[in-house]
Structures are given as C-alpha cells and as structure tokens.
Simulated assay, not measured.
Amino acid sequence: MSASPENGEFGTVPALQAALHAEHAAVYAYTYIGARSGGRQRERCYEHLEAHRAQRDTLRVELNERGATPDPGRPAYELPESDRDSDLDAYAQRVERQAAQAYLELAAAPAAAVRGLALRSLQDTTLRGMEWGTRLPVFPGFVQGTPPSQAGS
C-alpha cells in the first residue's frame, strides 16, 4: 500500500516492487533499442542498459533484505511504433519518465537509506531522460512534470 492521507502508512515493499518493475521495463527497452540503433545512440543505450541492470539488482537486494521475493519481469513490454531513431529516442524517454515516477513514490519511504536510494535514482533517471531529448521537468517524476493539485489550498 502506498502512502495516503487517509491511512498515513507507506508500503516500502510495494514501492520497491514498483521501482523494480520500472527497471525490468527499462532493461527490456534498452535491449530492444540497442539491437535497432547504431553509433552514438547504441553506445548511450548500452551505458544506460548497464545502469538499469545494476539498479534492478540493487532493488532485488533491498527486497530480499525485507524478506520479500522480488517480482520477475514480464515476458514482453510495449514497444515503439517503429524503429526510426526518433521513435527509439521517444521510447527511451518514456521508460526513463516511468522509472522517475516509481522512484519519486519510493522517496516517501520511512527508511533514510531507501529514501537516499530513491532520490539518487530519480536524479539518474532524469538525467538519462535528458540525454534522450527530454526537457528538464520542473518537478521530475511527476506526471507531466507538474505536482498534483493541492486540493483545498
């Protein structure tokens, strides 16, 4: 369960699992992009693939330390419309945006070490997205780069 105003609780394990799902998707995406790109795009792709693999492994350790079984990746993930460079770039941007959203949620964890992991990961995924052409959002990790409205304020 995620944090909510109603119950005040935060589920670290579900948030870690959500981040792990984002990492599984990123590994899948960068494997796909790398196989269909060349030159500097391929080099960048493989750098990012290694970063996401390492992050995936870190999340698995975090889950194991909490007595949870890390969820496996799905057999397949949504792919871009075509193999054009612009579509592959947009695909990488989307994957990094989704990872940023998962890490933003994980940043609410009560444990300082998990929050630190989440914040470093949010920064890393934001920077990787920018390498693919994403403009720096005002609020990284928030959908559309804007925080949710403050009801009643």
Rank of each mutant, 00 (worst) to 15 (best):
L79I: 11
A107M: 11
R36N: 14
G67H: 00
A112G: 03
R135F: 11
D71C: 04
A99F: 08
A100I: 02
R128Y: 02
Q123H: 13
P110M: 07
R60A: 09
A108M: 02
H52W: 07
Y32P: 02
R135A: 15
L79F: 08
G152H: 05
A54F: 10
L119H: 06
A92R: 01
G141Y: 05
G141C: 07
R40S: 12
G145D: 03
H48I: 06
S149P: 10
D83N: 12
V138N: 04
R120T: 14
P80K: 07
A51P: 00
Q123S: 11
A112W: 06
R115Q: 13
A111V: 03
A102V: 12
R66S: 03
E96Q: 12
A99N: 01
R94K: 12
H48Y: 10
R84L: 14
G38A: 13
Q144W: 07
A76R: 01
A51N: 11
A100W: 02
V143D: 12
E96D: 09
S86V: 14
P110K: 05
L122C: 08
L122H: 00
M130K: 02
A100L: 02
P137K: 05
Y77C: 00
Q150C: 14
Q144N: 12
A99P: 00
T125E: 15
Q123R: 10
